[in-house]
């Protein structure tokens, strides 16, 4: 009897809480769909830059699915490689091939090398170990580069974002549920002062968090770090700020801690999928475009530029301004959302 009463109560609570219900049934479908798209995506087909390569080789490269860009000289090809327009440059040297890989994504490296092996086997079926004739070099990274080196910057960005989002969101939410928000708003404090105060207070913590995480990953875990530590710090900090402002904003749309947690699969997980953990090229175009509205992707992209490719201010400036922009917009929206609790 008592058990039944408890079961009934829980069922009733669920019926009232449509959001949790939707989360239980719909969210897994969304996440599974994303996974499916990612892992069942077609094989990655590399973009190859060629400098003076015989025509039959070009035809068979294209037959294997590579997209070919022809360059007059090595300089232009190098520039295209640096800009990541192409994944590798292929030139002829003696009777072998010189392959220069962009190098920052191990999975892409692998697919380029596999494609070349197939091609050389096709052209010279009688020669075993055709790959021996390939001279492979790397623009960034090396063959030692592991997946963690590639994913390190992404994971740093993600975890900073995730935890700051949750903690800031829940603590702002608790202001509301414990009634302290109402009390705060009965004092002559302005709404924007409250929002800025929150950002400031949590901001102090996020500075330390950014320091700790960046230091730990680079010094302790030894993740590849080609660029400047200061940029890594700046980027982690800006990512936390964005997460902080987004978390406090969204807490206005949650009624309890559980509903705050529900934002994870809705807001956080999709950002992780599109943040570069998986090669985006295999995703449908429309899904890739969603990246534009996702703060996390700007952060992880810039972090990868700095940590793997050793890029500096010129490359990441755009992303930095976008992150600052996101934070400011979220803060503004939060000031507006607080109107729900006090009109002035």
């Amino acid at each position: 009897m008592k058990i039944w009463a408890i079961m009934l109560r829980i069922l009733r609570q669920f019926r009232r809480d449509k959001r949790t219900l939707a989360l239980i049934f719909i969210a897994p479908l969304v996440v599974l769909t994303l996974m499916h798209l990612v892992f069942n995506g077609k094989d990655y087909e590399p973009n190859l830059g060629i400098v003076q390569i015989p025509a039959p080789l070009v035809t068979s490269l294209e037959k294997q699915g590579a997209t070919i860009f022809t360059y007059e000289d090595k300089e232009r090809a190098d520039q295209a490689l640096d800009e990541r327009k192409i994944d590798a440059i292929i030139t002829q040297s003696g009777n072998g091939l010189d392959v220069k890989l962009e190098g920052s994504e191990p999975t892409v490296n692998k697919s380029v090398l596999m494609l070349l092996q197939k091609v050389s086997r096709e052209l010279q079926p009688d020669v075993n170990g055709a790959a021996d004739k390939m001279n492979v070099s790397y623009l960034h990274g090396s063959e030692d580069m592991t997946s963690i080196d590639q994913f390190g910057p992404i994971l740093i960005g993600f975890f900073v974002f995730f935890f700051v989002f949750l903690i800031a969101g829940v603590s702002f939410l608790r202001e509301r549920t414990t009634g302290t928000l109402e009390r705060l708003l009965s004092t002559p404090i302005k709404r924007w002062e409250l929002v800025v105060g929150y950002v400031g207070g949590f901001g102090i913590f996020t500075v330390f968090q950014a320091l700790l995480i960046s230091w730990f990953c680079i010094q302790v875990l030894g993740i590849l770090m080609a660029g400047s530590f200061a940029f890594v710090l700046l980027l982690t900090l800006l990512l936390s700020m964005t997460a902080l402002t987004l978390g406090t904003l969204l807490s206005a749309f949650a009624n309890n801690e559980l509903q705050m947690i529900q934002f994870i699969p809705l807001i956080i997980v999709p950002q992780l999928f599109l943040s570069g953990l998986f090669p985006l090229e295999t995703l449908p175009e429309w899904l890739q475009q969603l990246k534009i509205v996702m703060p996390l992707t700007y952060g992880t992209e810039a972090l990868s530029e700095v940590m793997i490719r050793g890029k500096g201010w010129d490359t990441i400036a755009g992303n930095i301004f976008v992150l600052i922009g996101f934070s400011l917009v979220f803060m503004l929206l939060n000031v507006l959302a607080l109107r729900k609790h006090r009109k002035i």
């Binding site: 414990t178 009634g179 302290t180 109402e182 009390r183 009965s186 004092t187 002559p188």
Partner: peptide, 13 residues
Amino acid sequence: LRQIGYMAQSDAL
């Protein structure tokens, strides 16, 4: 609001 001292029904501490 400065002129008012408000004590809500819930303790809000």
